[in-house]
Design a protein around this nucleic acid. Sequence first.
DNA 1: GGTGCCCTTTGCGAAAGTGCAAACTGAAAT
DNA 2: ATTTCAGTTTGCACTTTCGCAAAGGGCACC
Lengths: 236, 236
Amino acid sequence: MTPRLEIALVRDLPPFSGIDEKSLRDILDMARASRVKVGERVFEQDGEAREFFLLLDGNIRVVKLTPDGEQVVPRYISAGELFGIARALNMETYPASAVAASDCVVLSWPTAVWDGLVAKHPTFATNTYRTVGKRLAETQQQVVELATARVEQRVANAILKLANQTGRRTPEGILIDFPVTRQDISEMTGTTLHTVSRLMSSWEDLGWVKSGLKMITLVEGHKLVLVANGVKPDKR
Amino acid sequence: MTPRLEIALVRDLPPFSGIDEKSLRDILDMARASRVKVGERVFEQDGEAREFFLLLDGNIRVVKLTPDGEQVVPRYISAGELFGIARALNMETYPASAVAASDCVVLSWPTAVWDGLVAKHPTFATNTYRTVGKRLAETQQQVVELATARVEQRVANAILKLANQTGRRTPEGILIDFPVTRQDISEMTGTTLHTVSRLMSSWEDLGWVKSGLKMITLVEGHKLVLVANGVKPDKR
DNA sequence: GGTGCCCTTTGCGAAAGTGCAAACTGAAAT
DNA sequence: ATTTCAGTTTGCACTTTCGCAAAGGGCACC
């Protein structure tokens, strides 16, 4: 038999805030922990939603595939977040795929326990719906951005978001702590890897970012904030 | 004292499906009905979410304002739908404004009754979360569309969506049953009224739509479906 | 029944971003 | 050490879409 999961693993995570240890024990006892290697998929778009998940460590890329084979990345999940919670919204299939962007540790619960869980631990339900609300708000924000902002602004914003979400301080600046390609950024922002490459090269020339293979370091965040807000650099 | 609201008004609407008449009576007794004239606002973006609403008749345009004053229209609400349900997602303010796109009749409940309502009528909660799930899915779909489809496809799609949602059969085709301007369509699709006008003029020349002042009739829907899917007309 | 105001149309030039092609680079595998 | 390959860079022509400007049209209000 697998050892019981440590309460300390999850006690301080937002999804479980305000839940007493006894309830936590109860919730954790229904979960299973597993590792997912970078590049592997946790679940598949349109697949039956048999489980829901909590990301303990690593980064998950959420990917939507369009009918004609293009990919869009509506968000990244970072440690401490719930994901794959289709069931919370009465959906039977996952609306997107989840790919490990770095090696991950995830907890998973069978979807079947959802209703009981929510009924028995209303605080958990409340926390979850707060998450859903935040995601809906973020997604709508993305619609607004795609509808009104230029590519340049959107790419700057994507990099800032990643740096905020999962950045690690280094001597040179804030390093995005998992492999991100130009292609990934382009799929987050609705453009091409070429355009992303051009933009990042120009920012690198200005010393605002430092980038290598699958690696981006934010050096002068405030400059990118200006770009994201549509402030044009002096034309001279 | 105002007369009691008729159960028949709402009995068959999706938000109340599966709810017995006694519960319905209970729920309705907390509601207040009101009329909203075209152009008036039901609530304001960032305003405190004091109430949530059910649209009994008419059409509501949901509007988000960007920091630099541009408008985006993420969705239209049509009769029978809940809206302004920020409270369901533990949010304190409305994330967008709601404007009557035609004369409307709405029911409203004080946000304060939400928790009790959900606790007492779990079916209602379930229905609501299903709605939220659908909206999240639709919004993500919009992100995908904005990220990958050309303006032409997005505009075609917007018209198709409106026609499906609120279209009325007429001898000429399917009429979108409330005033929509080119500007409105452009705000739904992230483009300019000019481009929308050009596209619609060209479709009108082909006989695929008929349009007048604030009025659009879909004549050959299947043609627009092709456009929406990115099928290019014969280049000849 | 005229006038003002919104909404719409359209032309033209310019800008933004794409698509293609080719070359380059660095890490990992043999 | 060499090879391989995914990821990146960059030039150039081209398309899409925008922005501006000006004109046209219809409805409602006086």
